[in-house]
Write a protein that binds this DNA or RNA. Structure first.
Length: 503
RNA sequence: GGCCGGUUCGUCUAUCGGCUAGGACAGCCCCCUUUCACGGGGCAAAGACGGGUUCGAUUCCCGUACCGGCUACCA
């Protein structure tokens, strides 16, 4: 029988979570939930040198925003606590010692300086089965020497790769992948500071936490043989998780994997949420702050390297959980396309109800200093303008004039074709509208057009000036809808105001 | 350099040996709309290359090219 599905995401808290990272989380989550399993988040903070303050909190905020709440994590707790590797330090050493005892690893006393010198001296130097004989380690030293050095000098534990052996494993995305052990070097397992490296820590933690599936980015593929050998050497082979190495997300232009700098350079977010690096105080903008809906963000991420085999492109998280399959994940990396990303958001805004959008839209208005108190009005406005909003801030551009008179009137848009006849028309329109008892779009339009006909003017020539008077520029939904919503007094006020400007 | 992985329109992708190679984004054109969008219709656009296997290859195998990843006491 198969063990319970338990999938873990193991980020290192070194900065904001970029697209690739969030997509890895997403796929982990989808797979776990689809199989009724657990989604676990474990923090890989064994390298204090790279640990960035606030980064862990940021990771959890991102997960929350995306709706990908873990079942177990340092924040949520769980039966295998602690979930931070730095707090599990005591666990690792015994396994490293055991590996040495069983002949699968050894102590190495070479100092970082010696290794640097070696690397300078020998191009492409690798600490491996061919070179370890000439290095300073427990394989070449006598027992006495080793015993003495163990207490007197710092040392690391290195895995002892076997000679010429083929490691074959099954990857859920790539199928059979094989490596020859003579090609992989003797990786450090336990560092001189007593902390494990990623290689040792993942294996031990995955084992201890009963992880059934290990999904991570493709950049980990080359170290997979080290991990698989460790599972074997530790005698846990039958409990080894199933592997899947996810394709990378690439730069939209040129080549290479997407990086933070690409976002700055090309003007789009690469992090889920704003991230301020405490060291440099630099802020990198996120999808959230750019005005993306989390539903859209999750949706677009899922489609980057996966599809359900049909032409469908819009999925809710629930639908993704249902439809997802690791077998349908594409093997090749995908270039990120911001235009397509925006399209997803546009689609989501269009299909969202005013109720869903209300809070987020209100926040956007708030940012621009417009406080909205009338929720019914806001809902009406949202319904009216959402089709033309791609990002959340677009609602302000498309709808601010419903809540306050436009501050700038682009009279330049009407001046060139302005004349007395039109001036006359609008003066009469004010009078007509003042008398109007029935203030709704259709009636307003009829009155407008009849008056135009009476003045021998084409309604078309008058609609643009009218629009500019009401909203300040050439944008917004139907003019009569706008007039109907802002009301008689305000409509007349705005016409009069612009007429004054045109004098 | 070595090792591993990848390769269908500009981009994301469908195709599980038999198609006029489908969809979406972006582009262009038309309709709707005298704002901008939405919507509707249309155009253009692809199987890296060379060998096999096969009645038949985008699909299977091999090689080449190109792209990517890794090659730290980082993850």
């Amino acid at each position: 029988m198969s063990k319970k599905v338990r999938v873990r995401f193991a980020p290192s808290p070194t900065g904001g979570l970029h697209l690739g990272g969030v997509r890895t989380v997403l796929f982990n989550y989808l797979f776990a939930k689809q199989h009724g399993g657990d989604f676990i988040v474990r923090i890989e903070d064994t390298d204090q040198g790279r640990f960035v303050a606030g980064a862990e909190e940021y990771i959890f905020n991102t997960l929350k925003w995306c709706g990908l709440e873990p079942d177990e994590s340092p924040l949520h707790g769980g039966p295998y606590a602690p979930y931070r590797q730095s707090e599990r330090k005591a666990n690792y050493r015994q396994y490293a010692e055991q590996l040495v005892k069983d002949g699968f690893a050894y102590y190495a006393f070479d100092t970082p300086e010696e290794l640097d010198a070696k690397r300078k001296e020998v191009p492409n130097f690798q600490y491996n089965q061919f070179t370890r004989g000439g290095m300073n380690n427990s394989l070449v030293l006598t027992d006495e020497q080793v015993k003495e050095k163990l207490v007197s000098t710092p040392y690391v534990v290195r895995i002892k790769m076997r000679e010429d052996e083929t490691v074959v494993f099954h990857d859920m995305i790539r199928g059979e992948v094989s490596f020859n052990t003579s090609q992989v070097d003797d990786k450090v397992l336990l560092k001189a500071d007593g902390m494990p490296t990623y290689h040792l820590a993942v294996v031990i933690d995955d084992y201890l936490m009963k992880i059934s599936h290990a999904f991570r980015g493709e950049e980990w593929l080359p170290s997979a043989p080290v991990h698989i050998l460790l599972w074997k050497y530790l005698g846990w082979e039958t409990e080894m998780p199933q592997w899947a190495h996810l394709p990378l997300i690439l730069k939209p232009d040129g080549n290479g994997k997407l990086s933070k700098r690409d976002g700055d350079r090309l003007g789009f977010p690469v992090f889920a949420m704003d991230w301020t690096d405490p060291k440099t105080n630099e802020t990198t903008i996120g999808f959230k702050e750019r005005g993306f809906l989390p539903e859209a963000f999750v949706n677009l991420l899922a489609m980057l390297g996966w599809n359900d085999g049909t032409d469908a492109e819009i999925f809710t998280l629930t639908q993704l959980v249902e439809k997802f399959s690791m077998e349908r994940v594409h093997k090749a990396g995908a270039k990120f396309d911001y235009e397509k990303a925006k399209w997803y958001n546009h689609e989501w805004i269009k299909q969202s109800t005013a109720g869903r959008l209300q809070l987020a839209v209100k926040a956007e208005f708030d940012k621009k200093g417009i406080t909205i108190t009338d929720d019914t009005l806001l809902a009406r406005v949202i319904e009216l303008v959402k089709d033309r909003c791609t990002l959340l801030p677009d609602f302000v551009q498309q709808g601010a004039f419903f809540f306050q008179s436009p501050t700038v009137i682009e009279t330049d848009a009407i001046k060139p074709k302005w004349d007395d006849k039109k001036n006359m028309f609008f003066t009469e329109l004010i009078r007509a509208y003042e008398l109007s008892s029935d203030w709704e779009p259709h009636g307003l339009e009829t009155e407008f057009k009849e008056l135009a006909a009476a003045n021998q003017l084409k309604p078309g020539e008058l609609m643009l000036p009218f629009r500019v008077m009401l909203v300040g520029g050439k944008f917004g939904p139907g003019v009569f809808d706008i007039a109907a919503i802002i009301g008689k007094t305000e409509t007349i006020k705005r016409i009069e105001h612009t007429l004054g400007l045109l004098q």
